[in-house]
Amino acid sequence: IPTFPLVVEIQNWDQVSIHQNVGKVVDMILRGQSYLPEKRWLDTNGTFKATDVDNPEIESNQTNVEVNRPITNTSYGKSTKILPFGINRGKIIQLIESNQMPIDLVDDLDRAELVVTTKQFFRTMPKLLKKAEDSGKSILVLKRNSTVQIREFLNDLSGQNSNIQHIEVAIQEASLAAEQIEAGEDRVVLNPQTSYVRKLQHQIAEDLRLASFSVGKEPKRRVTIARK
């Protein structure tokens, strides 16, 4: 007799698998029979969903569940559409709703203005990120999938002076500075930026194996990129 009547398998931040009737499930697996557990997840709009697998070997009284919980948008300005990859979507939705941020989550790359992921995923470059890069989409990379990093990113993205176009320009400026250094410059001083944008510029320098440091006082603090 199993110790637990069911098992909840955490697959990622937004999805779990529910294994009902553990004893029967174990027997099926040992016999080499196929088995599909019930899936429960949050989609990109924050909607809770569940699928009940029609498996005659497993008794279940679960039903499909769908509870709409749309993201609340602010009434000012145009919302920015972002596609998170490998990021805690539930935490993003919570922060967007609680702070009334003009940001929409999408699950379609064509609709996304910006893709946000972590350093770990960006280095392995899965198909979706490769497709985003090839299509010219802006990709912002967080060091970690942490609440602090996500909050800082969202706050900066939703700020009046830190919209997506501004961030894109700052990233392009850092990339151009790296090219200038490769062409022979010893160092290049960039324009003043917010702390979050400076972190992105530092990251570009690090990925290209260049040195970088910030100088000056807020709000005129800026990044300098140089040879190591």
Results as ranks from 00 to 15, higher is better:
residue 77 G to T: 06
residue 34 S to N: 08
residue 196 Y to P: 02
residue 122 F to G: 01
residue 19 H to A: 07
residue 95 L to F: 12
residue 102 P to W: 05
residue 155 N to G: 12
residue 163 N to K: 15
residue 174 A to W: 03
residue 5 P to M: 10
residue 202 H to V: 00
residue 23 G to K: 15
residue 39 K to M: 00
residue 137 K to Q: 00
residue 58 I to Q: 10
residue 93 I to Q: 15
residue 181 I to M: 00
residue 37 P to C: 10
residue 216 G to F: 09
residue 39 K to W: 00
residue 218 E to A: 14
residue 153 F to K: 11
residue 121 F to C: 10
residue 152 E to K: 14
residue 25 V to N: 05
residue 188 V to L: 07
residue 51 T to N: 08
residue 113 E to K: 03
residue 34 S to F: 09
residue 89 R to K: 15
residue 76 Y to M: 06
residue 217 K to E: 10
residue 158 S to Q: 01
residue 105 L to Q: 05
residue 106 V to W: 06
residue 54 D to G: 13
residue 168 E to S: 08
residue 127 K to E: 10
residue 2 P to L: 12
residue 108 D to G: 09
residue 65 V to T: 14
residue 46 G to K: 14
residue 41 W to I: 02
residue 37 P to T: 09
residue 191 N to M: 14
residue 62 Q to K: 15
residue 168 E to I: 03
residue 96 I to Q: 05
residue 19 H to T: 05
residue 102 P to V: 13
residue 183 A to Y: 02
residue 156 D to L: 14
residue 174 A to T: 05
residue 162 S to R: 10
residue 11 Q to Y: 12
residue 202 H to W: 04
residue 174 A to Y: 03
residue 31 R to H: 01
residue 161 N to L: 12
residue 53 V to N: 11
residue 151 R to K: 13
residue 155 N to D: 12
residue 216 G to N: 12
residue 155 N to K: 13
residue 2 P to E: 08
residue 168 E to T: 00
residue 123 R to V: 00
residue 56 P to E: 01
residue 194 T to Q: 14
residue 12 N to F: 10
residue 110 D to H: 10
residue 3 T to M: 01
residue 167 I to W: 02
residue 66 E to K: 13
residue 156 D to Q: 14
residue 44 T to C: 11
residue 80 T to Y: 11
residue 60 S to K: 11
residue 178 A to G: 04
residue 106 V to Y: 07
residue 218 E to T: 12
residue 110 D to W: 02
residue 226 A to Y: 10
residue 166 H to Y: 11
residue 178 A to V: 06
residue 190 L to W: 09
residue 13 W to F: 15
residue 31 R to A: 11
residue 24 K to S: 04
residue 174 A to K: 03
residue 207 D to C: 03
residue 63 T to P: 03
residue 122 F to N: 13
residue 209 R to P: 00
residue 11 Q to P: 00
residue 155 N to T: 05
residue 184 G to L: 04
residue 143 K to T: 05
residue 228 K to M: 07
residue 34 S to D: 11
residue 204 I to C: 03
residue 141 V to Q: 07
residue 9 E to K: 09
residue 196 Y to L: 09
residue 190 L to M: 07
residue 130 K to G: 09
residue 6 L to Q: 11
residue 176 L to I: 08
residue 140 L to P: 00
residue 98 S to K: 15
residue 199 K to I: 07
residue 39 K to G: 00
residue 85 F to Q: 14
residue 102 P to I: 11
residue 217 K to Q: 15
residue 137 K to L: 03
residue 10 I to T: 06
residue 172 Q to D: 05
residue 69 R to A: 04
residue 190 L to T: 06
